[in-house]
Structure formats: structure tokens, C-alpha cells
Design a protein around this nucleic acid. Structure first.
Lengths: 193, 193
DNA sequence: GCCATAATATACCGATCAGTCCAGAACCGT
DNA sequence: ACGGTTCTGGACTGATCGGTATATTATGGC
């Protein structure tokens, strides 16, 4: 009973995601965003709220679209298989064609002006969340006697996530998939047995 | 034969370095910088050129002041000792008190707007430079029979630098020195023997 | 004391930032 | 055909961005 929206919300959000991915939250201007999305500013604000909300929605879409493999990885039968699946998955995701290199959650806001602090904190929260999930998975494995008694699930999770973040930076610097897969392979050599 | 400068160039540069470290290149505004440095804009431009040149000078000062340990690490007698020294050194540097957490070279520009592309490329160049130096050191070690013949110096250097970059991100997220040292320790378990 | 020189502080520049006002246009229900 | 409602486009807001013109002030040499 009113004028219909002339663009697809999810499709335009996908375009926005790519801009944020390439330029980060602060580096992506509203002009960049609206041009890529093919809509005007009032349409953007009516549909998504503001730049910050748009970014959070883009982040959710990113998780659904590109980070699904992490949930699959967590289902692997052994802790080592989980670690391997995560490392290999990130190496491949960070170097896939069709989108910018690296991980959005890692690269888009690391340091920023005071104004973007809430977004920075949100990203830190999400990074910590995956690490905590991983740690719990490793704790379960240790309790099941699958990891040696002297191993520390928290350290293992932190090491895996550290490698993952590092791979994201390397990918942003142009490092190839094959190279990152070898990095993942080498990281697995540190795994306890 | 002219009015003397009322501030110390190196001391003010040090203040600027801290602002860039905390907020990144784009996140640090000229207002932030001049307030921290205790000087006015014209003084800043007369002394350092512009924001970009100021950042490059701050980067040089950063290398001299905080990255000296890398040169020391490269002088260690064995490849493994080099790797260990680098990892431990970065873990400690990234979590030292008195300055922001993480590594300036890693965190200050990862993704950015088109306008800052030259700075981003400069940082990628510097990151790649250290990795190349490390690779050459490992090649020497391999030639000396110190590393197994099937080892790949390039992969080893890339793995170390990936861990280092990841530690910088973890530090920026508030991870403690002890935790990063354990990450470094675990990474060393992947070292060939 | 006075000049040349260079650093200072204020006030400003055009450009761009995120965000919004408003007029017109497209739709649905009646 | 006509309201009521919602989206669209362009023009605009105040604030902030990096950078600068200008007038003043402090110095050393003469």
C-alpha cells in the first residue's frame, strides 16, 4: 500500500560488505557505499539505519556467507581435526577469488579513531567469541583424554587464532593460497600428541 | 639568526608516534596529533612536511626505538635461536607498558581508503622486507647444514612472520604478555629438527 | 637599535565526512 | 480517480578533514 523498494536489501548489503571488506569500516565512505550499492543515501538510511548498523548487518552476512566453515570445523571428531579444518579453512577463505583478500573480522578495524570505538569493540568481541568456542571444544577433548593431560586448551585455542589472524594479514599483503596452506600445515606441526 | 624553535623535533615526533600507534594513520587526526605534540599546525608542517611524511618519520623512529631487537635476533648463532628470539621479542614488544599494545607496522594500516594507499603499500613493503631478511638468514642456515635438506626457508620465514602478525592483533585485543609468550613457545614446537 | 630570518598563533581554506530535509513519484486500497 | 503511505533523488546540513595565508613575535648579526 505504498511505493515498493526498488532494490533488493540483501543484494545491496552484499555490495556494501565488499566495500567494507576492501576499505575497512572507517575507510569506506558513504559515497563509496551508495555508489557500490546503487542506491541513494536516504534509501540506505531508511533500509539499514546508519553506517554503523549497516556494518553490523554486513558483518552478520559475512559470517553466514563466508564463515560457515568454522561451524563445520568445530564438528570434526578430534581436536586436531578441528584445528586442521579451521586453519585450512581460513587459509582458503582468506585467498578466495571474487572478494578481497583476508578476513573481514580481522582486517576491517584494528585501530581507529575514538568515533569508531564501538565497532572496534564489537569486532574484538566476535574474535574472542570464536576463540572461546574453540577453547571449550579443546577442553572437551582434553576431558575425553584425547589431548595430553599437560596440554592447555586455552593456549591451543589462542595459538590457532593467532595463526589465523596472522594469515589474514599475510593474505591482505598478497600472499598466495598455497603459501598460506603451507603455513597452516606448519602450525599443525606444533600440535601436541 | 632567526627565531628558535620552541619544541624538540624528536620529542614531539615521539608523541606523534604514540598517537599513530593508538589510532592508526587514518584514525589519527591533525587535531589529535598537534594536541599531543603540543604544537600548532603550521609548526608541524614546517618541521615535518605533512601528515604522510610525519607518519614515515614516526615509523623510522619506531623501528629505531622499538624494533632494535629484530637486528639482535638476526645475529643469533642458529636459525632456531633467531626464530625464538624474534618470537619472544615481538611477544614482549607488543605487550610492553608505556605504549599502545601491538606492533605499529602491523596494526596502523591494514585496509584503508584510496587516499592512504601509498602508506599502506609502504607498510606492506616494510613487512615484506623483514620477512625477506629472515628468509635469507634461514637459507644461509640451510646451506650450512643446520636445517634439514627438505626444509623450506621461505616457508619458515613466512610462518614466523605470520605468527608475529597474529600476536600483534592478539595484543591489540588485550591478550597478556604471558599468554603471547606461550603462543611463541608453541609456535617453536613446529620448528624442524 | 635595527634588519633579516624563521618560528609562532589565529583564523581561515576548499573538500569531504556522516546524516537529513523535502519535493516528487510510485504504489495499494477504496 | 483519489488518498494515504512509502520510497527516491537531489540538494543541503553542521562538523571535521588535511592543509595554509597572514600577521606577529623572537632571535642573531651588524
Amino acid at each position: 500500500m505504498a511505493r515498493p523498494r526498488e532494490f533488493c536489501i540483501d543484494q545491496a548489503l552484499f555490495k556494501a560488505l565488499n566495500v567494507f571488506w576492501r576499505h575497512g569500516f572507517e575507510g569506506a565512505s558513504l559515497t563509496d557505499l551508495t555508489e557500490a550499492m546503487g542506491i541513494t543515501r536516504p534509501s540506505l538510511y531508511a533500509a539499514y539505519g546508519n553506517k554503523e548498523e549497516l556494518f553490523r548487518k554486513a558483518l552478520d552476512l559475512y559470517d553466514e556467507t563466508y564463515m560457515g566453515f568454522t561451524q563445520e570445523a568445530l564438528k570434526k571428531p578430534t581436536a586436531r581435526a578441528v584445528a586442521e579444518s579451521l586453519l585450512m579453512g581460513f587459509a582458503e577463505a582468506a585467498t578466495a577469488v571474487g572478494h578481497p583478500p583476508g578476513c573481514l573480522g580481522t582486517n576491517s578495524v584494528l585501530v581507529c579513531s575514538e568515533a569508531s570505538e564501538p565497532i572496534r569493540e564489537e569486532l574484538m568481541r566476535r574474535r574472542a567469541s570464536l576463540e572461546a568456542t574453540l577453547r571449550r571444544r579443546f577442553e572437551k577433548a582434553k576431558a575425553a583424554g584425547e589431548l595430553p593431560p599437560e596440554s592447555h586448551p586455552g593456549d591451543l585455542a589462542r595459538f590457532i587464532m593467532t595463526t589465523v589472524h596472522g594469515m589474514s594479514i599475510q593474505a591482505a599483503g598478497g600472499v598466495t593460497r598455497q603459501s598460506l596452506l603451507r603455513v597452516a600445515d606448519m602450525a599443525l606441526k606444533a600440535w601436541p600428541d
